[in-house]
Design a protein around this nucleic acid. Structure first.
Length: 518
RNA sequence: GCGCCUGUAGCUCAGCUGGAUAGAGCAACAGCCUUCUAAGCUGUGGGCCACAGGUUCGACUCCUGUCAGGCGCACCA
């Protein structure tokens, strides 16, 4: 159950009944101050103008309606017309019970209509993954988990750019090293090229395997690796261009074929076939997106690095055109993640593949561990640039938020090891402020998951987990769990079991382990 | 020059889509372990929310402009 949405619904009904007002403008917040309740709404203030009634008057009607419901121990009207809701202990206990008994507590089906293809990482197979890829991998994987949890169908895909100039250059570079010849101009350098030269088989496949290995170490999985080459082989690029020509979205100019993306919001038209007869990268990429639509996804999400954000306009325009011509309703969203700058002891580390001085994602994982790396990369909003200092991350391991959260889980597991029969009861367990604080956070977990999924902001999960952990540590410090009083022990047990389940559940969402011991 | 993103405590960042007294963590200082994990807890100090206007009963949040930083502006991929 998502209480926030339920509350919204109840207020909505009340507004309709009393004022004949249909509105979705029903803001609900988590007050920062305890005295303002568990949930607060400014709905009366927000709608006072439209209704031409005083906020107080509106608030009173709502309070009178909602007081009849069973959920609240108290509803106050405060200040100019805030409504502050206090959940009853019974409701809170219900949440605790659910969070213990339901393994996938927090799950919902709000997004069940969505059939999503989520593309992320999609690194060129011309070198090892770096920390930037790590950020998209961590964020993408977490978003996929979140969307799934909220009922969406999610297909995770990695697009392999295994065709084109860069690939040719890579092959030539490897070949040159093999034969002891100088690497061609604009070719690939770096020690990894020498490693690849020593391996048998196709360097592109070998590099792809290396990337897959790193991703699996990072616990990031894809449902499909989609090869660009197949688009060429199946003639899909050609077909796509024919399709666009026929539907009148192309024109020729200066010996090249142009795509009128400006019709759908791009700032300039784009070339599909160059005057030398070659396809552009873009031509191939839209063939890929047409393919996505043909596979019947209704939501297309791409995660791109900020260095590719110039690409957003043309690709969204292309998707719109396809959707229109193919008579489909497609929702598309391109997430732009800001770049990661890697530092070591405050000194910037170059990430260029060409210099060979790059620190790979694999090295970072080996140095600080998957858990810390994933947590670090996911805990910041994607649209802020991230300075990632390896030494600092290592040094911070002792005071890292990830350990703080994991420690809470391990602590609970430790207590449970000291109990022979972990029987718990969920009646009248909220007998102190610390327990209540935990309970209200547990109740909010499904809401946080949904908000986090809809906004595609996994950092809200880490934020939440830290808050919940903090509430637990406070509880643990104040109250002994195991005592002679069996009844009391069973009550306390319910609280910590709930915390443990939610921590485990939340950590799983972001791909971090929940250790039994630390 | 144009476009996108960012600017909040000494540092790293949140701020729930316009509401109440702007919050965490780190760092600093002072306390708390004969009892379930002290990788923990409690307390203290620390703010012109980049700046200037505007909209509003109400702005960190929306609009305009300025400044600073990052990233883009190909018949490259």
């Amino acid at each position: 159950m998502n209480f926030k949405l339920l509350l919204k619904e109840m207020i909505k009904e009340s507004l309709e009944k009393n004022f004949d007002l249909k509105t979705d403008l029903i803001p609900i917040t988590y007050p920062e101050v305890k005295e303002f309740g568990d949930y607060a709404s400014t709905v009366a203030l927000a709608n006072s103008k439209v209704l031409k009634k005083s906020p107080k008057e509106i608030a009173e009607k709502i309070v009178s309606d909602l007081s009849k419901k069973d959920y609240f121990s108290r509803i106050d009207i405060a200040g100019p017309g805030y409504i502050n809701f206090y959940l009853s202990d019974k409701v809170l206990e219900e949440f605790i019970k659910k969070s213990i008994s339901e393994e996938n507590y927090g799950e919902s089906d709000y997004l069940k209509e969505k059939n999503i293809i989520l593309e992320y990482v999609s690194a060129n197979p011309t070198g090892p993954l770096h920390i930037g890829h790590g950020r998209w991998a961590a964020i993408g994987d977490s978003i996929a988990n979140l969307l799934k949890m909220c009922g969406a169908k999610v297909h995770r895909e990695f697009y392999i750019n295994d065709a084109g100039n860069q690939i040719n250059l890579l092959r030539q570079s490897v070949e040159a090293v093999k034969n002891g010849k100088p690497i061609p101009e604009n070719g690939y350098h770096g020690s990894y090229i020498e490693d690849v030269a020593k391996m048998d088989g196709d360097p592109v496949l070998n590099l792809l395997e290396m990337q897959k290995k790193t991703l699996s170490k990072f616990r990031v999985k894809f449902d499909n690796y989609f090869s660009e080459l197949t688009l060429h082989k199946n003639g899909e690029v050609e077909k796509t261009i024919e399709f666009l020509k026929k539907s009148g979205h192309c024109y020729e100019l200066d010996g090249a074929l142009w795509f009128k993306t400006t019709e759908f919001g791009d700032d300039k038209d784009r070339v599909l076939i160059k005057s030398d007869g070659e396809y552009t990268y873009f031509a191939v990429d839209i063939a890929y997106h047409k393919n996505k639509i043909e596979r019947d996804f209704n939501t297309i999400i791409n995660i791109l690095g900020a260095d590719h954000h110039g690409y957003v306009g043309r690709i969204t325009a292309a998707i719109k055109i396809f959707a229109k011509e193919m008579n489909k309703n497609i929702e598309s969203k391109i997430l732009i993640g800001q770049l990661v700058s890697l530092f070591r002891n405050g000194e910037p580390v170059r990430m260029s593949k060409r210099t060979g001085e790059m620190i790979t994602l694999e090295e970072v994982i080996d140095e600080i561990g998957s858990d810390a790396a994933r947590y670090f990369l996911v805990m910041r909003k994607a649209d802020t640039p991230l300075d990632f200092d390896i030494e600092l991350a290592k040094k911070q391991t002792e005071e890292n938020p990830v350990f703080y959260v994991q420690y809470a889980h391990a602590r609970i597991s430790g207590v449970l090891r000291n109990i022979e029969k972990p029987d718990f009861i969920t009646n009248s367990i909220i007998d102190n402020p610390e327990a209540r604080d935990i309970a209200i956070r547990i109740a909010r977990y499904p809401e946080v998951c949904l908000d986090s999924a809809i906004n595609m902001e996994p950092h809200r999960i880490t934020q939440y987990l830290e808050d919940l952990s903090s509430a637990f540590h406070r509880f643990y410090n104040q109250h002994r769990i195991i005592t002679e009083d069996k009844m009391l022990t069973s009550k306390r047990l319910a609280i910590i079991l709930a915390v443990r389940n939610v921590l485990k559940n939340g950590l799983k969402l972001i791909g971090v382990e929940a250790p039994e011991k630390m």
